[in-house]
Design a protein around this nucleic acid. Structure first.
Lengths: 338, 338
DNA sequence: TACGCCATTGTTATCGATAACAACACCACT
DNA sequence: AGTGGTGTTGTTATCGATAACAATGGCGTA
């Protein structure tokens, strides 16, 4: 009859191998000083016993968890997913694991999430964006671990930064649109208060129009983030009714831009001949759809990779002052605009 | 001058509040027996000291981590992201946190990942798919925690199952296509050995064609997974050259189906008049694109929600035998087919 | 031969919260 | 007054791995 037995510990493996627990512990580390022979014997005994290494005990004693905590606004967004993937790929080579949480584009939720993640004692904390509640800032600043803000260039960074200026990127698109002759340019984005990157992009849009002396009233608020394809399509419908003479529209992301494009297709409106469309983020869909989307490549994967490098450098003690990596977004001209 | 001081512990908070560490511990739990007065005093002292609860110690002593480990093939896939989000939303209400890893559609990588995740002592383990290496199966079976296989209906489940038959779902689409008159039907999917759900879908496709006495040679292998828009477009190009008289094509996902659609648009081939297209997964893009995509809704979010409910039931001791939740995918007819 | 270095292994105390048990005060009810 | 229950707090030992230090044996070199 099977009795419910407790799972084996290192002590059990040690007994079976005829060594001390400490030797078992060393055998499970990569580069520690155990003879090849002993290590193999230990690992064999462990496999036979069905031993599974217990990180919780290791974490407490060694005061290391090998977690990298990451917050992103949404798990369903290909841009953020790309960043996380690049980050994860890079740090997992070093045995570090991503601990992921999403904020739903809400700074209050972000605060809760940050507090929860910090309890797990991660080695570093990566947050998306540079706007946080005062308490979240305080928690991060006092956590005693490297903090990296991404996808933004905050004026007063908490620690390290790997990002770009959302406002500047959109401004460059506007400059291009104006240079090729568009004058009645609209913006489709989310409600102002929530998605801070979206708000920055809209601010850059308005600033650029003012700079060119153009009308800034063509702003369509597509609801609370995330603004995806459906919201983009609806917003384009509103735009066409409220400002029928619009000759170009810039959308907060490629997803909404694609939605807007399809709405034009449904209404038989020629893109780009009657209205041009610009997106943001260089999602796969923008390169594939017909006509393909003019957009801005923000180098999502590169943000993740650079963040990983920065974290590894800090953990290795190679960097003792806050790092600031600035990404330069790229305007990609395709078929939805001149 | 600031000396580097160690972060405060419960003992520090206890001293400051004038109570025992145990009382502090209770104050940080939700429903434990501390007076409202004491709790507030403790939390105030904690806040003043900048105390952050240390999960690593709690995890070891209580033998609970409140982690739910989850493996998905790719973090960049909206279907799996939907499942994880629904799962996460449900379990986080109960203080459980998702520990996510991705396998890159590779069972060997899955094995490594499962081993790594089990070391963290999760309360339950959710895996995507029902095909695993023998060692992975053994690790899961011996882990002593609830195991839930999803997005599949394995013949010999390890533990619980929340899924559907990929083969059957595609078979139903084929049946519909045949019933409305399509006869030369092709399939676009990934290379056979990798993505097991994709392979199941192709198997269902072939079985259905055989049942109807139709030609089964129109199979396009679009490379190793993930098969996304670009691969779908390339595969459609191949299909049109190798089997120009094809009258319908079923794609392994909506992403590849959309890519295929755009290739037709680039070549001026009428959809669905000259060739019909079917997708899989009911991604947002399929509902928005023009023409909209005929597809199969596999209820990704529902899989996550049902998985969460199952986990909570098991952890509450309300379920002592393996659960098997079968999802019934839905054929959604839209504009890319009759 | 003697010395010291290196590789390998062992011993002891500890990381910080909490399970299990004990104790105390206070109140209601008989 | 005595009894029992409830709500609140305290005490002690412990979860399982490992940091820090110690010890051993083998080998090369002077």
């Amino acid at each position: 009859m099977d009795t419910i037995r407790k799972p084996p510990t290192m002590a059990d493996v040690a007994r079976r191998t005829g060594v001390s627990p400490m030797t078992v512990s060393r055998a499970f580390k990569r580069d520690s000083s155990v003879s090849q022979e002993t290590r193999e014997a230990v690992l064999l005994a462990a496999e036979e016993l069905g031993y599974v290494f217990d990180s919780t005990a290791s974490n407490l004693r060694s005061q290391r968890t090998d977690f990298i905590a990451v917050t992103i606004p949404s798990i369903n967004n290909a841009n953020f997913a790309d960043t996380v993937r690049a980050l994860s790929d890079r740090v997992s080579e070093r045995g570090l694991q991503i601990l992921l949480g999403y904020t739903n584009y809400d700074v209050a939720e972000e605060e809760r999430l940050i507090e929860q993640l910090l309890r797990r004692k991660p080695e570093a904390m990566v947050v998306t964006g540079g706007k946080h509640t005062p308490r979240a800032r305080k928690l991060l600043a006092n956590a005693g671990i490297p903090v990296i803000e991404t996808w933004d260039l905050p004026e007063e960074p908490i620690g390290h930064v790997v990002g770009f200026s959302n406002a500047l990127a959109v401004r460059e698109m506007v400059n291009h649109f104006v240079s090729v002759g568009y004058r009645k340019i609209a913006f489709i984005g989310g409600d102002a208060s929530r998605d801070t990157r979206g708000t920055d992009r809209r601010a850059g849009f308005i600033a650029a129009l003012i700079h060119h002396g153009l009308d800034t009233s063509r702003l369509i608020a597509a609801g609370p983030p995330p603004i995806s394809m459906r919201e983009g399509a609806n917003a384009m419908g509103q735009l066409l009714e409220r400002f029928p003479d619009t000759d170009a529209v810039i959308c907060v992301s490629d997803l909404s831009a694609f939605g807007a494009l399809t709405e034009c297709q449904r209404r038989g409106i020629a893109v780009p001949d009657r209205i041009a469309i610009g997106g943001f983020g260089d999602y796969e869909i923008g390169a594939i759809c017909v006509p393909s989307l003019t957009t801005i490549n923000a180098f999502a994967s590169e943000i993740g990779a650079k963040t990983a490098e920065l974290i590894l450098d800090v953990l290795d003690g190679k960097l003792d002052q806050p790092g600031r990596v600035t990404i330069r977004p790229d305007l990609i001209l395709r078929q939805t605009s001149r």
